[in-house]
Simulated scan of single mutants.
Amino acid sequence: MRITVDRERCEGLGMCESMAPDHFEVIEDDDGNETVDILVPEPDASDRDLVQSAVQSCPVLALTFTG
């Protein structure tokens, strides 16, 4: 299982962080824009449902969860 983020789409809205704060963190990029940082790019199988829900909560569809 792997989480990826499309930084061109990400607006740093924080839905993923609010649902799974151990896996996502909203940060400010070099240009001063907010974006998400993936803290655990390959989460444990026990976190699959939580991570999948957080990914699906992204209103701009910037996150992908494969595996």
Rank of each mutant, 00 (worst) to 15 (best):
R2H: 15
R2Y: 00
I3E: 01
I3W: 02
I3S: 04
I3L: 12
T4M: 07
T4H: 02
T4D: 07
T4K: 14
V5S: 02
V5C: 11
V5P: 10
D6K: 03
R7L: 14
R7F: 15
R7Y: 12
E8D: 14
E8S: 15
E8Y: 11
E8F: 10
R9Q: 11
R9L: 15
R9D: 09
R9W: 13
R9A: 04
C10P: 07
E11V: 05
E11F: 07
G12M: 01
G12Y: 00
L13W: 11
L13R: 14
G14E: 03
M15C: 09
M15N: 11
C16F: 12
C16G: 04
S18L: 10
S18W: 04
S18T: 13
S18Y: 09
M19K: 10
M19R: 05
A20E: 00
A20N: 01
D22I: 06
H23S: 04
F24H: 00
F24P: 01
E25Y: 01
E25D: 03
E25C: 01
E25A: 07
V26N: 05
I27V: 07
I27L: 08
D30A: 08
D30R: 08
D30L: 11
D30I: 13
D30G: 05
D31A: 08
D31M: 12
G32M: 00
E34M: 14
E34D: 14
T35S: 13
V36C: 06
V36Q: 10
D37N: 12
D37H: 06
D37I: 15
D37L: 08
L39A: 09
L39K: 14
V40S: 06
V40L: 05
V40R: 01
V40N: 14
P41D: 13
P41I: 05
P41Y: 08
E42F: 12
E42S: 09
E42Q: 04
E42C: 02
E42I: 00
E42T: 05
E42L: 03
P43E: 08
P43D: 14
P43F: 15
D44L: 14
D44H: 11
D44T: 15
A45G: 10
A45R: 03
S46Q: 10
S46V: 13
R48I: 14
D49H: 05
D49F: 00
D49P: 08
D49G: 06
L50G: 07
V51F: 04
V51Y: 01
Q52Y: 00
Q52M: 13
Q52D: 08
Q52F: 00
Q52V: 07
Q52K: 07
S53R: 12
S53E: 10
A54H: 01
A54E: 03
V55A: 01
S57D: 12
C58A: 08
C58M: 06
C58G: 08
P59M: 13
P59Q: 06
P59T: 01
P59C: 14
V60C: 13
V60E: 10
V60L: 05
L61M: 13
L61K: 04
L61I: 11
A62G: 04
A62Q: 07
L63W: 09
L63R: 03
F65S: 00
F65M: 06
F65K: 09
F65T: 00
T66S: 14
T66I: 08
G67R: 05
G67C: 09
G67V: 10
